[in-house]
Design a binder for these strands. Structure first.
Lengths: 161, 161
DNA sequence: CCCTTATTCTAAGCCTGCTTATTAAAATAG
DNA sequence: CTATTTTAATAAGCAGGCTTAGAATAAGGG
């Protein structure tokens, strides 16, 4: 079976790093009353006011139902407002509330602190490199996921499965 | 407020990359009947048979209660066995079952595939670099977490708080 | 020996993700 | 116009993290 060092398995290392960082963020953002995921929703909403849930879920690359319950909690807490879409009675339009707007700067600051912890001892070049490599990996993964998602999108004759 | 590109926020990018990769792993490992987290438990158990839950939770850097419920499910599924520690009636000793051992090679193969997806287009050097940088970031984060955990570990006189 | 503290595990309850399935409305085909 | 398909949102239920709290046992101090 040969020794396999799971402590150096890419997937596990990536996942644990992300979990530890997320935990640090949540610890600090608790004072705001917001979790990491909720901050991310606000961050996107600021620049996409009026978007509907399906659209926002796609931006965040999460399932619509995952977002729906996030928004439930955030609406109840008064950070986000759902307004009916006048053009489409199925859909909601999402808006950040006035109450939530001042938190924006604090969120950025917390993100900066946690990032500094994670990347302490990194040179500016190394910080750039890890960011670029992560962005490429993320794109690879969403491309592969998208590919699997569209099994019969373009049934061109002759394009055998 | 200045434009802030959350799509390039280190924390969000790291978290999303890890989530997408984890999702891919889970999709593939479903045929084994195991999730990513359960694979990780098995991977550690193979080399630490007889360890107790507190010890394994520390290796995995998760909370003991998180592991307890993981083990509940895995024991029920027959992948892991809990045996009472003869020396300590509070503790369980954990063992991987015979039924689970053959899955090991498959887990490694799935990990390899998912890693290849994530790192497609990466040169061998780039693959090494992202791994090393992630390991450094992970260590940074666990060091910082540990530091916060021990508020009065070494009350050296003169070491003002 | 007893009392206090530390350790091991569990319970309860929350958050954020997922899959699968349903409802209601819109869009499209005929 | 009607019937079908697609789309937006939600419901139900599960996995895996967390915090906070508590029970049982072990270990140490006096």
């Amino acid at each position: 079976m040969a020794e396999f060092d799971f402590n150096r398995s890419f997937g596990f290392v990536l996942y644990e790093t992300a979990r530890l960082l997320s935990k640090r963020f949540d610890q600090r953002s608790k004072s705001l009353g917001l979790t990491r995921a909720q901050c991310q929703v606000l961050a996107y909403l600021v620049y996409h006011e009026g978007i509907n849930q399906a659209g926002l879920a796609e931006l965040l690359e999460i399932e619509p139902i995952s977002l729906a319950r996030l928004i439930d909690r955030m609406a109840q807490a008064g950070w986000v407002e759902r307004r009916p879409d006048p053009q489409d009675r199925r859909a909601w339009q999402l808006f950040i509330t006035e109450k939530a707007k001042p938190l924006f700067a604090e969120m950025i600051e917390i993100g900066r602190e946690v990032r500094a912890e994670a990347l302490s001892g990194f040179s500016p070049q190394e910080s750039d490199v890890i960011m670029e490599l992560l962005l490429r990996a993320r794109r690879n993964l969403s491309d592969h996921a998208a590919k699997d998602d569209v099994p019969a999108a373009d049934p061109v004759p002759g394009a055998a499965e």
